[in-house]
Amino acid sequence: MLLQCRDLSVGYRGQPLFGALRMDVDSGEVLVTTGRNGSGKSTFLRCLAGQQQPLEGTVTLDGHPADDREPRFRRSVAALLDGGAWYPNLTAAEHLSFVQLVNAPMPGDWFTTADLAEALALDGFADTVPGQLSSGQRQRLAVAMVLARPSRLLLLDEPERHLDEAGRDSVDRLVTEYAGRGGAVVLVTHDATLAAGLGRRTLSLDRDAAEGPAVASGKRARRRSRAR
């Protein structure tokens, strides 16, 4: 199992948002996380990304604790959490090239910059700097950048924000393709189309965690996924 959460409780200043969560995600799987505003979805993702300590419980990646300070962990996890980040002096196309150049050598079967530019329709603004892009175009660029670097676990927090329908479809296809290449995805979304992708498991923090210790792995989660 690639990603495991055991007895996970997350929150702020000692106040848990949810507790006793058990969850597994293996390579090739997409786990969709849903929940009402304030239910702790983004905090949950930050814990998975090793950027925040859970109140209780453990998060492990390949058996090692999730810790953003560990180089090996950072190399394995790509995350788009709080909107995109970019350099104001590079164009959209240069951002993709730069990320891949710094991360070189890239795995042979990884997304190329051309793949990502085509999938997210970046060509129309490839030579434009982020300061001149619309919110939707910036979000496309942010998604492309997080997919440009090689990783084994992809964490996406509402990647559909600011995107039109075509953009959401592109993200949907890329998430499926990422999983198809052997990566694991944890996706927080309010978009029904993204959540209902084929074969995706769903973790609802409202149903599975708020009522107490929840188990979102195995049969229970798959049962919900089929029920959709």
């Binding site: 180089p71 959490l81 980040a85 970019w86 350099y87 002096n89 670097r149």
Partner: peptide, 16 residues
């Protein structure tokens, strides 16, 4: 660019 790297940890994570 050094300032940008420092300001935005997300950029540093992309560069690994």
């Amino acid at each position: 660019n050094a300032r940008r790297d420092r300001d935005l940890p997300a950029l540093r994570r992309l560069l690994t």
